[in-house]
Design a protein around this nucleic acid. Structure first.
Length: 664
DNA sequence: TGTGAAGGGT
């Protein structure tokens, strides 16, 4: 493991892993700051809404000043009372008022209080100036905060830190980092507050040297063992996706708290490392730390990404026992986990039990309906949402349009696209892609092309890709080739469009053209992602790749599929060999079909799960037409519900039919 | 009387 080297001079800056660079003076440090900037969300006011409803500046002051009880008016009555000479203000009062405005995000009132303060005899009080600066920064008014900062003739360490924090928390990491050397030049000594904000800022940028340098300063000033700074360091290395370093810093922390644990769990969740996230979660409890909203939110998100339904259910039970309320903060990820793992009914139950839902909860539910092919139900849900007064946003409309596209609801899709524009929500690329998909799937290929040509933006590869997909579906070779060319001009290295074009040619028997596509792919070095399926059995994931016969139970799997195949043929299944897009004879095509990864996964699941239980399979590409047909018959023969999640949506096979109504 | 770190939907 690498050691951290402590710099003992301002002229030397070291980072994790050893010496990176020598900086002779502080201005040189600035050269390390590149210009790109990445955003970090700030959710500090997430749980304030109930208190906000009860906003009343006066009532806040009343608690401490009895004579104000006689003044029933709220809001800025306090300022009037000062003007009328009824109330003699002191510095503490201005601070209280400014802080209350900060806490409730009441910037308009805050500005009035600030202006009043500037006319008062306390206007030179640095502490109150700091409070005002902090108020502007917390409310996202960075220009106002900066104005306060620039006008302050005397600044202390809190002034500098509040400004740095303001930038850090408002997605201006570069500005935060630039201020640090200035602060040092002004001979201010940074403290643990300064470092936690600087580390957050550094974590939002791509140049890892910056974070390393700040880490060096933390060590130099002796703040690395502070619990806030330590957690920020863990988070920094998580943001850089350097998990070994993150664990190394974490293990070295004498003082850990929930935040340090949550950072690690969230980072593994972001990287879709569900098993690692779960391991940290279990360790956290062994060390007697209580999981918080953040912990559960991350854990459910990790389970959603890996489709670990059983583990997710176990943690859900754990959460219920802990007594934490099902607020949107956790509920939305829990809902998403159930939806993504195919437990649609559980997703609805979570939604219905949410203590307070927000626009994300509604959008998540809309997504769940849309992905399960329930077009009309998605639209009902959307109408219900509007009645509750929750404002739809651009994601809401994307969910609605996706539902229309997947459900074949052409007219309704067009209606909602217009409604979106009328609601002053500007469509973005994702909406345009969905509209092309909607028109294309419905077979309106010319209209889809027309739509693209009239777009107010330059069409992207995703937009042309949607048209290409539709051409594959409707076997339109000429337009497909045209769309493919546009995609290749914009993004030649994505394998998907090449495969689509190959499939268009191959399914039409145009083997010369098809082989040209293969040749072109080889020339530019694009490789086809192998098709694979997963099935989760007894807490372990089993993966199957098409035509792969390396599984230890391969013989049993083949025998099982052989049995199923015979039975489904008896009731009408006919292998559709047009889905084997290889230049091979008919008999070999049928053999190829039976080794499709989803069929192998299904046969294995039938061997390993009790009769009657639901089978859940995941696939990395769209299900093929033959497998879709075979699964419908299989669900009848084996009397099981089979849920298949592919890249686009869910298919629920039950009693011989599929929830998608064969439209996908 | 003032300053800090952790989560989510297509």
């Amino acid at each position: 493991m690498n050691k951290f080297i402590v710099p003992f001079s301002d002229n030397l800056i070291f980072v994790n892993g050893g010496f990176i660079s020598t900086v002779r003076s502080i201005p040189n440090y600035l050269r390390f700051l590149s210009t790109s900037s990445t955003a970090t969300p700030n959710a500090s006011t997430a749980l304030l809404s109930e208190e906000e409803e009860a906003f009343d500046l006066t009532s806040h002051v009343i608690q401490e000043k009895d004579y104000l009880k006689k003044s029933p008016n709220g809001g800025l009555r306090v300022l009037d009372l000062i003007d009328q000479g009824v109330l003699e203000p002191d510095g503490k009062l201005y601070n209280q008022l400014l802080n209350k405005c900060t806490q409730l995000g009441k910037i308009k009132e805050g500005k009035l209080v600030h202006n009043h303060f500037l006319k008062s005899r306390f206007k030179h009080y640095m502490v109150i100036q700091n409070t005002a600066l902090n108020m502007y920064a917390k409310c996202g008014c960075l220009d106002d905060a900066r104005q306060v900062f620039d006008k302050m003739p005397v600044k202390d360490m809190v002034t500098w830190t509040a400004m740095i924090t303001g930038y850090s928390q408002n997605e201006k990491p570069e500005e935060a980092l630039v201020l640090f050397p200035e602060m040092l030049r002004a001979e201010m000594k940074p403290n643990h507050f300064t470092f936690s904000s600087l580390l957050k800022a550094a974590g939002a940028r791509t140049d890892e040297r910056e974070g390393g340098q700040i880490h060096g300063f933390c060590l130099k000033y002796g703040y690395d063992s502070n619990v806030y700074v330590g957690s920020a360091l863990v988070e920094l290395y998580c943001r850089y996706e350097r998990m070994n370093e993150a664990h190394f810093v974490f293990d070295g922390l004498v003082d850990k708290n929930e935040v340090s644990w949550n950072s690690l769990i969230a980072a593994h969740a972001r990287k879709s490392e569900g098993d690692k996230a779960l391991r940290v979660f279990q360790r956290m409890q062994r060390h007697d730390f209580k999981p918080t909203h953040f912990t559960y939110s991350s854990i459910f998100s990790a389970c959603a990404s890996t489709g670990s339904l059983e583990q997710g259910k176990w943690i859900h039970a754990h959460m219920l026992k802990s007594g934490l309320k099902l607020i949107a903060f956790i509920g939305n990820t829990l809902l998403d986990m159930y939806a993504k793992s195919g437990s649609f009914d559980d997703a609805i139950r979570v939604f219905d039990r949410l203590v307070k839902s927000d626009v994300v909860s509604w959008n998540s539910m809309l997504t769940a309906y849309a992905q399960h092919g329930l077009g009309e139900k998605t639209l009902d849900h959307f109408e219900k949402m509007k009645k509750t007064g929750i404002e739809p946003n651009s994601v809401t409309f994307l969910c609605v349009l996706t539902a229309c596209s997947h459900g074949g609801l052409l007219d309704k899709g067009q209606y909602y696209f217009e409604l979106m524009k009328k609601s002053n929500i500007e469509p973005d690329v994702s909406h345009y892609v969905t509209m092309v998909d909607l028109l294309g799937r419905a077979g309106q290929l010319d209209r889809a092309l027309n739509f693209i040509e009239e777009l107010p933006i330059e069409p992207t590869s995703a937009i042309w890709g949607a048209l290409l997909g539709a051409c594959r579906m409707h076997k339109n070779m000429e337009l497909g080739a045209y769309a493919a060319e546009r995609v290749f001009e914009l993004d030649p290295y994505d394998s998907g469009p090449h495969i689509l074009l190959y499939n268009i040619y191959a399914s039409a028997g145009k083997w010369n053209e098809a082989s040209k596509v293969r040749k072109f792919m080889k020339e530019i070095g694009v490789k086809k992602e192998p098709a694979c399926s997963w099935v989760d059995i007894e807490n372990s994931v089993h993966m199957f790749v098409a035509n792969d016969d390396n599984h230890p139970m391969q013989n049993e799997i083949n025998k099982m599929w052989g049995k199923i195949s015979e039975k489904i043929k008896e009731i009408g299944y006919v292998p559709d060999t047009s889905h084997v897009l290889l230049y091979v004879d008919e008999q070999e095509r049928e053999v190829k079909l039976q080794y499709h990864s989803e069929k192998l996964a299904l046969a294995f699941a039938l061997l390993k799960t009790p009769p009657g239980s639901t089978i859940r399979i995941k696939k990395n590409i769209r299900v093929c037409g033959d497998c879709h047909s075979a699964f419908k018959y299989a669900s009848l023969v084996v009397e099981r519900e089979i849920i298949l999640r592919d890249t686009n949506r869910f298919h629920h096979f039950y009693r011989g039919s599929c929830s998608c109504g064969d439209y996908w």
